[in-house]
Design a protein around this nucleic acid. Structure first.
Length: 578
RNA sequence: CGGGACUUGGCGCAGCUUGGUAGCGCGAUUGCUUCGGGAGUAAUAGGCCGCAGGUUCGAAUCCUGUAGUCCCGACCA
């Protein structure tokens, strides 16, 4: 492609709407443009990278035996009513009506559609397993679109669904997808970790998130360098501190005026924070959030943090059905006193005690009396929990739940997820097959997703410097850029054209910067665009040399045009082979 | 949904406190000079100052409302 003819506009200045590298650089390089909040369009260079990522996904999906189809983004409400999600999905679902007033939505995901296809087409066990995928535009009316492609309202996603006879079959399908995902993200040049994830509202028995490591990511993961433990911090189990071997002392009320926080109590009584008990109060609602159904008091050791996901799982309620309580209102009903809440003497609320507290002795907790705390509080003797479970968050340095070594915590971008769905959709939607004994049996499903546009953003986050993007060869819009320093110099022009033609003939994707621009502009643009190899044709041609430079390296070398062409071809082919 | 900030030419911004119908840099167009890391010079084009209402002889500027954008939080396959 000749850049003099390409639709491309780069920006010198940082658009004021962008804050993180991928957002800034994708806008500055002109690869994408914002239409409205959370909705972007892609220009020629950006679209080429999207298609490269899609092609990697297609190759790896096809290699597993999955088959590509294409469904509409427009979906009828009836199918969502069958699965029960039309009412449950909430405002994130983009809803619309046709001219006759029928309800539709723009698909945020396609479980219903694929289940519908399968229940109509599959009748016999002989037809299973099946695995269908599509690469398609998805819509989610996010409460808060953020960071460009990181959290957008319209995005490109590869989604696929596996259909098996039984759980054993699902295990095989799941493993295939897990392995394919690892290959895909490796080929895209990402540093990532597959981590165990909470199954959340989707349900099912097992799930992994594929997380590209990045400081700007919205996911937080815990992992261990000593063993292979890796999980979202929400999901990660906690290895409780060992039971304290101490004599139980008599409980004692102490005056602690004005000490409402753990820090204040600990320093006032000169106690370490791990000898205190932290209290967190909640109001519970029914699923529709229309009615209060009770109070919850959760207790954890003073130096820990609460894990909301674990708490709602322990209570067996959806996450949206609980919120922090107004302690003033809750006080009379349950006996708590804001800032001085403890587990002793509470009534009319569900008491959830973190499992670790059971083995801790002579702790300090609120006395449920203004300006007083209790010392030497012991589980079993002084208080009990209605529920005793691990409800705390794993933090950096806490012991690894598998091997006990200190845990590491990192942030990352969730670029893919795999789920074992089981019969969550096949049951309400009636997706059955007949087995060998003519018995109707539910199809066992898995679902798997990759955020294509988000993957593009993650690649930029991991591969850039102060001058621009540094595309890995596998997803670069072009492999090589030939920078013609002076288009007016006939000799330079001839050499550049020759190199351009030979690279194209060898199947290398090459840009020729033949624009009537000053050299500085061309160099800046080449760096910003992040093309992996740059061959500069300038004054060196008088001596028979051109300049060969890799975007990811600082050094440039002089080569003859022949050497430069051959080296570029060799490099591109080597990267293609993996 | 709560909190905060912003909205002035294609992009980045100033002007607003103390009302008098708009300015800078980049970008664009043309000429001359320049030509290896976002050139110099001269000239030109381009703006219902987010939108609506109000105050005023007069509003980018003051007041009210509203929309959009971004950030923090809540929420979230």
């Amino acid at each position: 492609m000749r850049m003099s003819e390409m639709h491309m506009k780069t920006l010198r200045e940082v658009p004021n709407e962008a804050e993180i590298a991928s957002h800034i650089l994708l806008l500055r390089s002109g690869m994408m443009k914002k239409l409205v909040s959370g909705v972007y369009g892609f220009m020629p260079l950006g679209w080429r990278t999207i298609r490269k990522i899609e092609d990697i996904i297609r190759q790896e999906m096809d290699a597993t035996g999955a088959q590509e189809i294409h469904c509409s983004a427009l979906q009828p409400a009836e199918l969502w009513e069958e699965s029960g999600r039309w009412s449950k999905y909430g405002p994130e679902l983009m809803r619309l009506k046709d001219r006759n007033g029928r309800d539709f939505c723009l698909g945020p995901t396609h479980e219903e559609i694929f289940t519908d296809i399968i229940r109509n087409d599959i009748t016999s066990y002989r037809q299973l397993p099946q695995n269908l995928y599509q690469i398609q535009t998805k819509y989610r009316d996010e409460a808060r679109p953020r960071f460009g492609l990181m959290r957008s309202r319209e995005f490109i996603m590869k989604d696929n669904y596996s259909f098996d006879r039984d759980e054993a079959g699902l295990d095989v399908s799941y493993k295939k997808m897990y392995d394919a995902y690892s290959k895909i993200f490796t080929r895209c040049g990402l540093t990532f970790r597959p981590v165990e994830a909470d199954t959340g509202a989707i349900g099912g028995s097992n799930s992994h998130e594929f997380t590209a490591l990045s400081e700007v990511g919205e996911s937080e993961i815990a992992y261990c360098d000593n063993c292979d433990m890796a999980a979202t911090t929400e999901r990660a189990e906690f290895r409780d501190a060992p039971e304290v071997n101490e004599e139980m002392l008599p409980m004692e009320e102490v005056n602690t005026p004005g000490t409402k926080t753990i820090e204040e109590v600990a320093s006032f009584l000169n106690l370490p924070k791990d000898r205190t008990i932290k209290a967190l109060m909640f109001v519970k609602y029914n699923d529709e959030m229309t009615e209060q159904t009770g109070y919850v008091a959760a207790f954890i050791r003073g130096d820990r943090e609460l894990n909301m996901i674990k708490l709602v799982n322990a209570l067996g309620i959806p996450e949206h059905a609980i919120e922090f309580a107004d302690e003033e209102k809750m006080g009379p009903a349950t006996g708590i006193v804001g800032g001085f809440t403890g587990p002793v003497g509470l009534h009319d609320c569900t008491i959830v005690v973190d499992s670790e507290l059971v083995g801790q002795k002579n702790m300090c907790a609120g006395a449920n009396k203004k300006d007083y705390h209790l010392k030497n509080v012991n589980y079993g003797r002084d208080y009990k929990g209605d529920i005793v479970k691990d409800i705390k968050l794993l933090r950096e340095g806490d012991p690894c739940p598998v091997c006990g070594q200190p845990t590491k915590v990192a942030r990352g971008i969730e670029v893919g997820q795999v789920f074992k769905l089981g019969t969550k959709y096949s049951e309400p939607m009636g997706a059955y097959y007949k087995d060998e004994n003519q018995q109707d049996r539910l199809i066992v499903m898995g679902c798997y997703g990759i955020g294509v546009t988000r993957t593009m953003a993650a690649v930029v986050e991991q591969h850039h410097d102060e001058n621009g993007i540094i595309w890995p060869m596998s997803v670069a819009p072009y492999h090589v850029i030939v920078t013609l320093v002076s288009a007016a110099d006939e000799q330079q022009k001839a050499v550049a054209e020759d190199i351009y033609g030979r690279l194209q003939a060898a199947g290398v994707e090459v840009l020729l910067d033949d624009r009537d621009e000053r050299p500085g502009v061309k160099f800046k643009d080449a760096d910003l665009l992040g093309i992996p190899v740059r061959i500069t044709v300038g004054r060196g041609v008088a001596n028979g040399v051109v300049e060969y430079k890799l975007r990811r390296e600082a050094d440039k070398t002089e080569k003859t045009p022949d050497e430069a062409v051959n080296d570029a071809i060799a490099l591109v082919n080597a990267e293609r082979r993996g």
